Computed example of a mutant assay.
Amino acid sequence: MNAILHEDFLFAVSEEAAEKALFDVGRGLRRGALAPFLGPGLVALQAGERRVPAAPEEVAAALHTRAPAPSRIRTNMWSVAQHIEQRRHRNTLKAWMAEIFSAEPQPTALHHWLAGLALPLVIDSWYDGAMRAALVESGRTDFANIQGITRAGEVRDIWTRIYGADGNATDDPAASTATTILYEPHGSARPAGNFLVADSDYVEVLTEIDIQTPIPEIVRDRRGSLGFVFLGCRFDDQMLRTYARQIIKRSKGPHYAVMSGAELTRNERRFLIANGITLIDMPLPNAVNLVVDAAPAP
């Protein structure tokens, strides 16, 4: 099937055209011309029994079991987390998030494959730490891990923290020389339990993000020569759309998103159109296999 241009101008490919696009995505990743943008949907590809949530709604449900939230916010992770922070304290929220994501990370075949590439930039938008674990398991020491942090309790003008392959905090010069930057904009359970999850965590971030202040300078520098491929991501919440849009801002492109065309919400469709993202309409497991199997770049 050829690429089709929907009447609302969403560029989408499926069937044979999707396979060709994924072959190109795989080659682009191998060349370091594309950056993977990984989402919670990859949790479903883990081998064996799934041990951590695979969507914000699942985190909301896990938090709700610990502290029941009002029905009007029960399925919204950010609002449920805010409810807990206000009534139980920030430390309680952090402890519960660490508990929810306490299982050892289970990198998928995709994570391991990406860890073997000299990618200049990887975005991991989930809390489980699977991409970091794959980099560590590969034996690589030439990566730096930059994580978004909450401003709660901070007196400095700080938005992120940087960790080396050994899990210890490091400084900006160390990150600037790293072969691979792993950027986790919402934080991660590992190595230090940084979680941006409550509405209050995002108040200052969303005030500043249009001028890019919360996004690390090295991420802004490296994205200028890159396109992005979204794998395991959804954009059905304004928070997720805002972060993705600002992270890929001023990047070179092209951009791709592996998603089900039939499941797109109206806002997701608009987001893809507005940001020039090609929809690759294929089940995620099939797409990942094609990306990993892509022929090496000449």
Score class of each variant (00 low, 15 high):
113 W>L: 08
116 G>F: 02
116 G>N: 02
116 G>Y: 00
118 A>Q: 06
120 P>V: 03
120 P>Q: 02
122 V>I: 13
122 V>Y: 00
124 D>H: 03
124 D>M: 02
124 D>I: 07
125 S>H: 06
126 W>K: 05
128 D>K: 00
128 D>R: 07
129 G>L: 10
129 G>D: 04
129 G>T: 10
130 A>F: 01
130 A>G: 01
131 M>Q: 09
134 A>Q: 05
136 V>G: 00
136 V>F: 08
138 S>H: 04
139 G>M: 13
140 R>A: 10
142 D>V: 07
144 A>N: 07
144 A>P: 11
144 A>Y: 06
146 I>E: 05
148 G>A: 11
151 R>L: 15
152 A>G: 06
153 G>F: 15
154 E>V: 04
155 V>C: 00
157 D>S: 09
159 W>V: 03
159 W>H: 06
159 W>T: 02
159 W>L: 07
160 T>S: 12
161 R>I: 01
162 I>S: 11
162 I>E: 02
163 Y>E: 08
167 G>M: 10
172 D>E: 13
173 P>G: 14
175 A>I: 03
177 T>E: 13
178 A>E: 07
178 A>I: 05
178 A>G: 03
178 A>Y: 01
178 A>N: 06
179 T>D: 07
181 I>M: 10
181 I>A: 11
182 L>I: 09
184 E>K: 14
185 P>I: 07
